[in-house]
Simulated assay, not measured.
Amino acid sequence: MTRNIAILAAVGAVLFIAVLTGITLFGGSGGDADKYAQCRTSKVAGGSSQIGGPFTLVDETGKTVTDADVIDKPSLLYFGYSFCPDVCPLDNSRNAEAIELLEERGKIVKPVFISIDPARDTPELLADFTENLHPRMVGLTGTPEQVKAASQAYRTYYKKNEPEEGNEDYYLVDHSTFSYLVFPDEGFVEFFKRDLSPGQLADKVECFLEAR
């Protein structure tokens, strides 16, 4: 009996401290609850606030735009380049298919392609590139400094390889291949790897959209 009373007293003390400090025993502070927890399949060191942020780039019409101009609705961002021989077309085609699936479900997501090859990817060229992938896809380029700043904000990687001998205009660019889901007023939400099918990507994005 004495032992049971001691146990109950200890439990009561823990509950009392929890109430005083606002701690929920089964998952941390209510104010820190992640409304997207059930949707997440990736982790970002330091938290999702470490990815994303403001940028200034140039759109397909040659107009200077900011992140606030571009991300006016849920958006799926991809950093690549139009001369990419395989990965970029495949990844962006996958993204476009996923966005079509979402649209069939009544969910609108904007596809955004940010070039990491501003020397060759002019606004006019990007307009043709994105039009072939999806009618609502927005292509962005800019000065090397603007592109670098946007890439650093999203913690992407890219590196220009040496051009072919005798052909300075032909070169490949190594780069990361994540797609980033970004919401207006919230910023970066999640990143997705390229091994997802269009259907899998659509399902994952839909989860975040419904949890907003």
Score class of each variant (00 low, 15 high):
Q146K: 06
E145G: 01
Y170F: 15
P135N: 13
V44K: 05
V147K: 11
R212I: 12
Y170S: 15
F191V: 09
A153S: 14
V189I: 14
E145M: 11
A119C: 12
Y36R: 00
Y78R: 01
R136H: 12
I17Y: 07
T61I: 03
F208G: 06
D72I: 08
P123M: 10
D67R: 04
Y36K: 06
D169N: 13
S82E: 09
D91I: 03
H175D: 08
I23M: 15
D91E: 08
G27K: 00
R40Y: 11
S151A: 15
G62M: 13
N4L: 15
Y171T: 04
T122C: 07
G27M: 00
D67E: 10
D72F: 02
A119G: 12
V138L: 03
G31D: 13
F208T: 06
V205L: 10
A13S: 11
V19H: 15
S49G: 08
Q146F: 07
P163Y: 09
K159G: 02
T66Q: 06
H175S: 01
F26H: 13
L90Y: 15
A211Y: 10
K193F: 12
D72L: 02
I5C: 01
K159C: 07
C88W: 10
G80Q: 09
L25F: 05
V58E: 06
L209N: 00
A33P: 10
T41D: 07
C84F: 12
F113A: 08
A96G: 03
D32Q: 13
A33R: 12
D32G: 03
F113H: 04
I71Y: 01
E103F: 04
D169T: 13
E165W: 01
E97A: 14
G166D: 04
R120W: 09
S42Y: 13
A33Q: 10
L102Q: 01
G46P: 03
H134T: 01
